[in-house]
Design a protein around this nucleic acid. Structure first.
Lengths: 264, 264
DNA sequence: GCTACGCTGTGGTCTGACCACAGTGGTCTG
DNA sequence: CAGACCACTGTGGTCAGACCACAGCGTAGC
């Protein structure tokens, strides 16, 4: 009966069931591939195909050798899987870059507003502490010796630090994946800028504006600052969302070729 | 040098590179597994592990037999991959159900607001037509003979139809995945309701309220209606987000308008 | 007591084999 | 000649067995 399911799906379902039943938890070791194969009555290659899927999805980490750190261990690193999924879908034309950017806008404006409102409600120590990482990243970004790629990497981490402070892991992972999936485009667009140092300075200023609005507890201002920041950069490198309704798009975008193969 | 990468990752990267270079597009056939293995200098099992990943991620569809419909074909069905990723992460405790619900709130309120504002700007025929599916689903949900599971399935499709009308495929796929990942919880919570028929009637009424607000071009009302609808149901079945989340204020707060995530 | 070596078990990979399946094209039959 | 039928071929799906590299553990040797 269950034979109509493919062998590797059987393995996948078995692991999922063990996860749901509590038989497996993060940190636990999966049985060895050979043992799992025998236990489920499938070949080792089928087990491996399922493990590969789990690995890409960020559910297990595998290591060779022996000892406690070897084997397949249940972990929970959704960011990697989210990045891979979004990146490949973009590559396969399943997702438009403009849709990715728009989704970032939705999520990040919500994060900023939430953070601002949370701070406005009560001066919560936790949030304040959480934002200290954002401050540190901001300071690191002031270094004029940074290359554009380095700056943009810190930029991404800054945005992520806000999401982490907001506390929603799903949004953190999604934002990370969205950003990673178009990182190539963000970096590729740098040469089209008239002056990178000017742009970097503007971005840094906008970051501080975002943080100020959040700390001031002004949700609307935070939302607006984030929107302008993200939409502004992508518009500047010629990747702004086409229709863009209410968007204070700053600089005119002279960028010609929006479609350039990012990094593989 | 590239030997440190695992064989299946090499295959994955090769396919991704072909996708980005345009050598592969949706609808194209991948070379056969044996040919791909020979071409890349790896074993067939490694090719299969990579294909398995691509399949789960919704990038390829495989079929046995011969002829034009057989083999591995590039497709673009991100929803399946998103569902699998989110569902398994929930199973592995990587994501809290409350974070999933909160993320739905962020995305769906943004969708509703975008839709309303798009209709307010101009009576666009396209959007009107797109919402016809939403209407049809609404009517289908009026059937009192529906089981809770059937009703909830139509409910999910209704929400998805709004996202599709808004036009952002990333949000459509993410919403579908988020919803699927907690479908079990939504259905499992039904028995805890005092009266399913009352709840179903209320949900149907709320759906019409959402659609009315969208058609009226009232973004704030649409946002509020969606928020109340989703948060209300999960609160009713005991899954409400504990510390009330992150999203724009429901009714009162005239959520500042300048910055709303454009979805189109 | 300490070091160093080999043993053992892990995942990683490859090879070759077999199966089920679905078109294809030829053959056989009317 | 037209139609139905069937073996052929190539595809993915699966399995079994064989190595390899690696990392820890235990023991033999110093």
């Amino acid at each position: 009966m269950s034979d109509d399911a493919r062998a590797w799906q059987l393995v996948l379902r078995s692991v999922e069931a063990d996860l749901l039943s509590g038989a497996l938890s993060p940190g636990d070791h999966l049985p060895g591939e050979r043992a799992l194969a025998a236990e489920l009555g499938v070949g080792r290659s089928s087990v491996r195909e399922a493990l590969r899927v789990l690995e890409v999805l960020g559910l297990v980490r595998t290591a060779t050798g022996s000892g406690p750190s070897s084997g397949a261990i249940i972990v929970s690193t959704p960011r990697g899987g989210m990045s891979a999924l979004l990146r490949l879908q973009v590559a396969a034309s399943g997702f438009d870059v403009s849709d990715i950017v728009d989704t970032r806008l939705v999520l990040e404006t919500a994060v900023a507003a939430t953070l601002a409102e949370a701070l406005a409600d009560s001066s919560d120590d936790v949030d304040t502490v959480a934002l200290s990482e954002s401050d540190a990243l901001l300071n690191a970004m002031d270094d004029p010796a940074l290359t554009p790629a380095e700056f943009l990497a810190l930029d991404a981490r800054f945005h992520l630090s806000l999401a982490e402070a907001a506390g929603n892991q799903v949004i953190v992972a999604t934002m990370a994946g969205l950003r990673d999936s178009i990182e190539g485009y963000a970096v590729a667009g740098v040469p089209t800028l008239s002056s990178w140092s000017d742009t970097a300075a503007r971005l840094a200023k906008e970051h501080r504006g975002i943080l100020d609005a959040i700390r001031a507890g002004d949700g609307a201002a935070a939302r607006s600052a984030v929107h302008g920041h993200i939409a502004g950069y992508y518009a500047e490198i010629g990747l702004g969302s086409a229709p863009t309704p209410a968007n204070p798009a700053p600089a005119p975008a002279p960028a010609p070729a929006p479609t350039e193969g990012p990094i593989a």
